[in-house]
Amino acid sequence: MAYTACPAPTSQEPQQTARHALSTITITRRLHHIPGLINTLADRYARFVAIRRQRRTLLSLTDAQLLDIGLTRADAEEEYRRSFNLL
């Protein structure tokens, strides 16, 4: 009969292995969502940049151009100030 230096398996080992497997699955599921989160953040940032650019462009229009689209200088400045609420 051969003896080994390894201890005999205990009844807790299968439970620990199952817990480890479950935590690995949980981590994998969380990591699976990271690309989607990055895309969402990138989309929001791109939208923020586009809105800021549009509001700056609106502010750069002349009073006559603003009047053509039915706005006043005060309306354009108010809309531009709303850009800072996005931050």
Rank of each mutant, 00 (worst) to 15 (best):
C6S: 10
L22T: 10
C6G: 05
N39P: 02
T40R: 13
T10G: 15
P35Q: 04
I69V: 11
C6Q: 09
D63C: 10
I25N: 05
D75F: 06
G70V: 02
L86C: 00
S23E: 13
R81N: 14
S60A: 12
L71V: 02
T4H: 06
T28Y: 03
P9R: 00
E78Q: 08
P9W: 00
F84S: 06
R44G: 04
C6D: 13
P7K: 03
L67A: 11
I38C: 13
Y45M: 01
S11L: 15
I34E: 05
R55S: 09
S83L: 07
D43W: 07
R56C: 06
L67D: 13
T57S: 10
N85V: 07
D43E: 15
T17V: 11
H32I: 04
A18C: 01
G36S: 06
T72E: 07
E13A: 03
T24W: 08
I25V: 10
H33T: 13
E77W: 06
R55V: 02
R55F: 09
S23H: 05
Q16S: 10
A74W: 00
T40A: 15
H20M: 11
Y45T: 00
R73P: 02
L22Q: 12
I34Q: 14
L41C: 12
R47E: 08
T17E: 14
D68L: 06
L66M: 02
T4G: 12
D68V: 04
A74S: 08
T4V: 13
D63V: 09
D68M: 03
L31A: 04
Q54H: 10
E79W: 11
T28H: 07
D63P: 12
P14M: 00
D68E: 13
I25A: 12
L71N: 02
T17G: 04
R44Q: 13
L71I: 04
A42D: 12
A46D: 05
R52M: 10
T40W: 09
Q54R: 14
T40E: 15
T62I: 00
F48A: 07
A8S: 13
L87V: 13
A42N: 09
R47G: 03
R44E: 15
R52I: 11
T10W: 02
